[in-house]
């Protein structure tokens, strides 16, 4: 089964790497330098697609968690786990690239803005989920607890966003946020942004597939070990 899987999607990592190589080229050479922010603006092409992928992964995590509780099919648990783990990679990338950009442009590493804080809390929920999984041994129970955590974590994030937004609007914003209108971007920047997004989506897909494959093998090892101890 695993051999077939590898055969069917063997081209995926290659494609992802090619698109990524083009995206990096586009980020540095095709896209023009921003007149106001200068070179630091280029990190935007890494930052924004990672954020979209991180939130997309979060959504998939929620869907697979619900599907698991609905069907109790271990495959959905494996997929939820794979999405969460690949998602936390991109979420970490968002949290690292954000401050690197913010320092020269806003003048501070961090501000307690609603979007930043929500992403940080999202990251913490992801990590809590992975720790919960790591500290549980019984596979069925682990899968159920993890799925519950996936659902509760997802429901929580909009409330966190709302509460942080209210919390901060009582204070003046330290800096002016970019209006974020994608329509204002010149074509060359569009090329960089969307090619990076495509590259990251393919990478996410690769990571999640690989992770799911590893988990399936782990499940087989656990099964075999249980069978041996049983006899």
């Amino acid at each position: 089964m695993d051999r077939n899987e590898r055969g069917a999607f063997g081209w995926l990592p290659v494609l992802a790497l090619c698109v990524l190589a083009f995206a990096i080229f586009a980020d540095f050479f095709i896209a023009g330098t921003d007149r106001l922010q200068g070179p630091p603006q280029r990190i935007f092409y890494i930052h924004v697609p990672s954020a979209w992928v991180a939130f997309f992964a979060f959504f998939l995590w929620f869907i697979f968690s619900i599907k698991y509780l609905d069907t109790i099919n271990p495959e959905h648990d494996i997929r939820a786990h794979a999405c969460a783990e690949a998602g936390v990679v991109f979420c970490t990338l968002v949290l690292i690239t954000g401050p690197i950009w913010a320092r020269p442009v806003w003048g501070v590493w961090w501000t307690w803005d609603a979007r930043l804080t929500t992403t940080l809390i999202l990251w913490m929920i992801y990590v809590g989920y992975l720790m919960l999984r790591a500290y549980m041994t019984e596979p069925g129970q682990r899968a159920r607890f993890a799925a519950v955590m996936g659902i509760i974590g997802f429901l929580n994030v909009p409330i966190v966003h709302m509460s942080v937004e209210w919390w901060r609007t009582l204070h003046p914003k330290p800096v002016v946020m970019r209006s974020g209108g994608l329509g204002d971007l010149p074509d060359s920047m569009h090329v960089a942004l969307w090619s990076t997004l495509l590259a990251f989506m393919l990478l996410f897909w690769c990571f999640a597939r690989k992770r799911a494959q590893i988990e399936r093998l782990n499940a087989r090892v656990e099964e075999a070990r249980a069978a041996r101890e049983g006899t």
Partner: peptide
């Protein structure tokens, strides 16, 4: 593990 799971969810 309780605080690690609980505190992020209790932020609001």
């Amino acid at each position: 593990l309780l605080p690690v799971l609980m505190f992020p969810v209790l932020v609001p």
